[in-house]
Amino acid sequence: MCLGIPGRIVAISDPDAMLAVVDVSGVRRTVDVVCVAQESAPLEELIGVWVLVHVGFAMSRIDEEEAAATLKVLAEIGEMDGEMEALRTGSLDLLPQAN
């Protein structure tokens, strides 16, 4: 019940009722967009935006920059991997201590 699924808004179906069509992996469904609309902008601004869809409501815009930033941090961990492996072949005592 509490899992959401990423989808992309492809059309505004009823601007007065704040309803839009979202495409989730090829499946289309009408969703409520009250939670992702901006008061200052026309609803058309939402077309092409990735959102997290949850029980028929677009609940959050997926921030592509934040997704990229998270992946970048993770990629750095991947790069550190070789170094970590080298350390691990020695004793754990060689690692810096927290305290």
Binding site: L74, I77, G78, M80, D81, M84, E85
Partner: peptide, 10 residues
């Protein structure tokens, strides 16, 4: 999976 492996090591 490669990222998962790196994270699990850390």
């Amino acid at each position: 999976p490669a990222l998962a492996t790196a994270l699990i090591r850390e």
